[in-house]
Design a binder for these strands. Sequence first.
DNA 1: TCAATATGTTCGCTTAACCTAACTTTTAGG
DNA 2: CCTAAAAGTTAGGTTAAGCGAACATATTGA
Lengths: 258, 258
Amino acid sequence: MTAREQNLSESLEDYLETIFLLIREHAVARSRDIAARLHVNKSSVTGALQALAERALVNYEPYGYVTLTPAGAAAAQKVLRRHEALRDFLVKVLSIDAAEADANACRMEHAVSKTVVDRLVEFAEFVETCPRAGAKWIRGFGYRCQEAAAMPEKKECARCIEQCLDEVKSQETPGATKTVSTTLSKLKPGERARIDKIAGTGPVARRIADMGVTKGSLVDVVRVAPLGDPIDVKIKGYHLSLRKEEAAGIAVTRLAQA
Amino acid sequence: MTAREQNLSESLEDYLETIFLLIREHAVARSRDIAARLHVNKSSVTGALQALAERALVNYEPYGYVTLTPAGAAAAQKVLRRHEALRDFLVKVLSIDAAEADANACRMEHAVSKTVVDRLVEFAEFVETCPRAGAKWIRGFGYRCQEAAAMPEKKECARCIEQCLDEVKSQETPGATKTVSTTLSKLKPGERARIDKIAGTGPVARRIADMGVTKGSLVDVVRVAPLGDPIDVKIKGYHLSLRKEEAAGIAVTRLAQA
DNA sequence: TCAATATGTTCGCTTAACCTAACTTTTAGG
DNA sequence: CCTAAAAGTTAGGTTAAGCGAACATATTGA
């Protein structure tokens, strides 16, 4: 890792994240928008930008456009990954509603270590995709959360077992869910796949390896640009933009939708 | 709820929690111990105590012993419940090691809403006790986390399915795991039970109901005093101290150890 | 083109939380 | 009983984060 410990305050992390998102959405981050999102006075934004500029995380000069330095963008993405990992976990695993999940993620993102985030991402994937009853089981939990009061425990447990039996029986032959070997460049947005092999040892291969991506990791295709060239994917909670040729070098197995 | 929004800062929450724990451990909370635990200067402790006294959360007078007011104790317990719920979740569900789990819980405890904590507690219980493969399944996840690199994905999934089948087959008769109907007052420390019925409508019954405890909720017996009288239990993450006679009025089904 | 409005900055002030150093009170040993 | 050490407090300073008001610069539409 090139990144030394920057030790950003929660507040500065929030600014950085907001700037990153605004740039992604509006191409440019204006002071008043930052202020609006963070519910602070515009003069506070100026102060924060100066603090970030001192740390070489943003390019700032009075009245000019604000951009992120490479270090700033990297830091912002770290925060964002934590945010998304937490939010997704809360929504998908704990069945918390979107608004509350986001609000919680927003506060928790400053408090969790990398280990915990990694584990959360892995857990959510495990639950969603384990060919065992994982997926259905978690749906059962969500159901139970909504109906907790209305449904006596015993009945729930019995249903639970039935579901599990059904599920496992129907999946006794693991490879049965028709999966197709292909390459990452051939997938459409929203599709999900499992990585089989990464060709080459170029910078992308290394970047991917750095994330702890092993052979079986999941990939979600987030967005594909008009000409199919930059392909935005999400692996282990990390957003990644790949050139079409790079994506073509990654052999994957297409999976059923989540 | 009698509690109005006290809106404590993270810092003050930490002080409150520490004081509560110190009183529980040493019967009295000394300034230097608070300072040592929170890694702050003793003069900072004085400042914090004054702030807490202003909010009527501690009884404080210079050079005197510090105690918690009822409001302070209640606030401290709320924080502690969040802490324990997070820590237990991290350890039991995500297989994070104890030290890191605690450090994370310590920071996260200021960031999570009640809804999320409730859900985390419920989830951990669900995973640990659902008669489906829950318990074993989660052990499988822990195993996978440790051996992730060493174990190819495919093999893991296959093993996963086998486990599930075994587990479910062995539990096809849900009531089969020999459970015994008894009363809460008869349990020993470390034992776990499921609540069947709560007799009476006294203050304890109401206190328990306020926690969202329904018929099927789990109880963990934490500590039983020498003469079996105050019985400390944990329900839905809440610590509760019951008189023997109160505990006798709660019918439970003893469960196998976690 | 140029004034009105929107946007951004600076200045001065507040609060919370911490620190160090110097002081006071308590405690405990001889 | 009386004094050193330990424990606690006060005073004064620092830093981060915020605010409002006044000032500066851009933008834009008539």
